[in-house]
Design a protein around this nucleic acid. Sequence first.
DNA 1: GCCGTTCTGGACCGATTAATCTAGAAGTCA
DNA 2: TGACTTCTAGATTAATCGGTCCAGAACGGC
Lengths: 205, 205
Amino acid sequence: MPRTGRPRGFDRDQAVEAAMELFWEHGYEPTSLSQLKACMGGISSASFYAAFGSKEALFQEGLARYLATHGQVMAPLHDPSLKPREAVEQALRRSARMQSGRDHPLGCFVTLSATNCSPENRHLRALVQQERERNRTALADCIQRAVDRGELQAKTDTAGLTTLFNTFLLGISLEARDGTELEKLDAAASQLMRMWDALAEPERP
Amino acid sequence: MPRTGRPRGFDRDQAVEAAMELFWEHGYEPTSLSQLKACMGGISSASFYAAFGSKEALFQEGLARYLATHGQVMAPLHDPSLKPREAVEQALRRSARMQSGRDHPLGCFVTLSATNCSPENRHLRALVQQERERNRTALADCIQRAVDRGELQAKTDTAGLTTLFNTFLLGISLEARDGTELEKLDAAASQLMRMWDALAEPERP
DNA sequence: GCCGTTCTGGACCGATTAATCTAGAAGTCA
DNA sequence: TGACTTCTAGATTAATCGGTCCAGAACGGC
């Protein structure tokens, strides 16, 4: 933090937040420098580059901001203290609720902000893809843990079940962006969790 | 078709095909005129505009081409002569197979080509969204038909089940683009279809 | 008051964007 | 052959892209 010199004329934190929403809504490439500067209160190019370095660096800050806030709906998947079924169900329902929320862009930043990408920005796509991979792995671990603990039948096709849940999870983004209401997404999640129960080892009487 | 004048120096049909693949891979906005002209054999701007009118018109032609070819994997959903279960299963499995195919871009044109969009191209996003809506409706009709015919229990939550299948269907795009192999997608589809069977009215003995 | 530091407004950069224009080439038809 | 039509190569358009530069403003420390 600088203790001397002319103070910044805008709130850097709010600016990152506003930029995140722009990237979230329109994606990395369609979001222009002019839009970004405008959403920060009409700051100048000099101010922009002094504060963030580049458009790309700002995008990475936006991603980090998203992961630390809205993206936390996926946290249950990475919490080993939760029962696997609980973790999965919470990830689904929290994702659905967050992504269909109306106080920010619809859908998920991680799946939607770098979908359409020029070859020269491939590394940015890789950045968010890596995040999806993290969730995919966590989900797989969750399901494996459920089998290990006897909460799913031993014969369960874990790879297939993981892909099923992950594909649904990813699909929520597109569904939410198309305007599907939370009620329907939640009902779909309920159906899917009923399936989990059907695959659960029946209690020995 | 013109019967007089200098003949076109390139194959218009092949050009539309090549453009479709570019839009499919990178999306509408990141695909530049230079790339498009290059993939058509390095034609000039004049040739391009004489043949297609505009970048946007070409995109619409590309979409139409996709729907008439690769997009036909969704046809079962619109075929009332198929049993509902068969229609849904075929739509899932054919989508998974097509979208993970390696002789064209991964995923689905309809869900991926206009995801990241500037406000001024909103109408193009609406164009592909409308296509998704068509499939959503067809899927809902399919499931309603299954209930009506007694192939699913009368108490079935049709809206929830429709959203479940549609969300999975959309998710296949993102999953395929992330490189998930057909084997896993197919296993996930199998799990989902097993769920259908669990919801089916049990046969009276 | 003055110095060093940091930020700001605005001009400016080359590159690229989608799209247009002009001159001429290459065909059909009479 | 010559009129007519259609397409092509290449220069050119205005606008916008992400990014840089500079002169001066606004602060803390001395």
